[in-house]
């Protein structure tokens, strides 16, 4: 008997994870379950599938979702196009790490403050708020998330690969396309994940930088909950989660393939 209690109370390093596990249970798992349950309940708490009908039957919600995905794709593409050359150049110069820090520093300032400041600048410049300003705000906010992983991967590439390619007679373009780019695929993928997933769910940036004229999926979810339409709001949240999971899954799959590329390259 004593032995059993002794075993029960045994303290290992595992014990230290309990507080966080408890936290996860309370604030992540239980809310997710609640969302799932709410999706099947109507306002009188009866089981129903009407919420699904309402969401998938209404073209408006699907248009909003489509708009959000498009904005997400554009933001990610812009971040990649702007971020890759920056990360590439920074990885080549010796003081690159310090400059990267300068890029990342703004991340330490709360994004709401930065967005409000951006808005004030646009207003002072007389720029009309709309899709353009929203995209600017998104790219500005998420660019560091793209540069960071890219820089880490690019500066981690063994120089000898590049030298080997040059030895074998590759010109600059070929060196870049055949060695640097394939070797940095994992960085590109994690950059895309880190930008795309948060952008499809943003709502504050779009709301602030367009005065509420650009209405994204995040805004839609917020509106539903605010209006007490928990069922539809929950379904939207689930749809969003599914998108996050899908993009994560695709990224993982690609990542594994890219490892294979690396090996075959070697």
């Amino acid at each position: 008997m004593t032995k059993r209690t002794h075993k029960k109370l045994r303290l290992t390093k595992k014990v230290f994870s309990f507080p966080y596990i408890l936290f996860l249970l309370l604030f992540v798992v239980i809310p997710l379950v609640l969302i799932l349950v709410n999706a099947f309940l109507d306002s009188e708490n009866n089981l129903t599938l009407d919420n699904f009908k309402m969401f998938f039957g209404a073209p408006s919600s699907l248009i909003v979702l489509g708009n959000s995905l498009l904005v997400g794709v554009i933001t990610t593409a812009l971040c990649l196009i702007i971020g890759y050359p920056v990360a590439y150049i920074l990885s080549k110069i010796s003081s690159g790490k310090i400059i990267v820090l300068l890029y990342v520093l703004p991340m330490f300032i709360n994004f709401l403050i930065r967005t409000l400041a951006t808005k004030a600048i646009f207003i002072a410049m007389g720029v009309e708020l709309g899709m353009g300003t929203v995209l600017f705000g998104m790219v500005y906010n998420y660019l560091p998330f793209m540069i960071m992983p890219l820089h880490t991967t690019l500066s981690g590439i063994d120089k000898s690969y590049i030298e080997a390619a040059q030895d074998l007679g590759a010109d600059k373009a070929t060196v870049f396309l055949k060695t640097v780019l394939p070797l940095s695929v994992s960085g590109i993928l994690s950059g895309i994940t880190m930008v795309f997933i948060p952008t499809i769910s943003t709502y504050a940036i779009s709301q602030l930088l367009s005065n509420g004229k650009i209405f994204l999926f995040g805004d839609s979810i917020q509106l539903s909950f605010e209006q007490g339409l928990y069922g539809v709001g929950s379904i939207m949240s689930i749809v969003m989660l599914i998108f996050v999971l899908i993009s994560n899954f695709i990224m993982n799959k690609f990542n594994r393939n890219s490892n294979a590329v690396r090996r075959s390259l070697w």
Binding site: M54, I63, V64, N67, L223, Q227
Partner: peptide, 14 residues
Amino acid sequence: VNMWQRAKSGAGVD
């Protein structure tokens, strides 16, 4: 609320 969502998101995909 649905009407409001449609009005706010504009007529269709931008």
